[in-house]
């Protein structure tokens, strides 16, 4: 199962858990599984079936550009970070 690192601001939804392991072979499935375990998480991460604009999700070290369709492996690491800008 994929390991998801929960950002500090969302840990009130995970009862303080910093890390969650959930099933799912796509980011959508992983977030759905997270939301089932910790209701409200999906709403904080997604809007209208897309990742919110100011949030980036990192899968195995790379910021996903495929949105919720990003494939996730059973041993994947997933991080949730603010979107950043470059010059």
């Amino acid at each position: 199962m994929a390991a998801v690192w929960i950002p500090p601001q969302l840990r009130y939804l995970t009862r303080g858990a910093e890390r969650a392991t959930v099933p799912g072979d796509t980011l959508r499935a992983v977030i759905d599984a997270l939301d089932a375990a910790y209701p409200g998480l999906r709403d904080r991460l997604c809007e209208a079936d897309e990742i919110r604009g100011h949030i980036s999700i990192v899968v195995d070290g790379d910021v996903t550009q495929r949105g919720l369709t990003q494939p996730v492996r059973p041993d994947s690491e997933v991080q949730i970070i603010p979107a950043i800008a470059g010059g």
């Binding site: 950002p7 601001q9 969302l10 709403d43 904080r44 991460l45 919110r52 100011h54 949030i55 603010p82």
Partner: peptide, 14 residues
Amino acid sequence: DMGKDGDIPSNIAS
């Protein structure tokens, strides 16, 4: 604050 908005007007955008 990570997808959640405050209740009062503020100059702190995030």
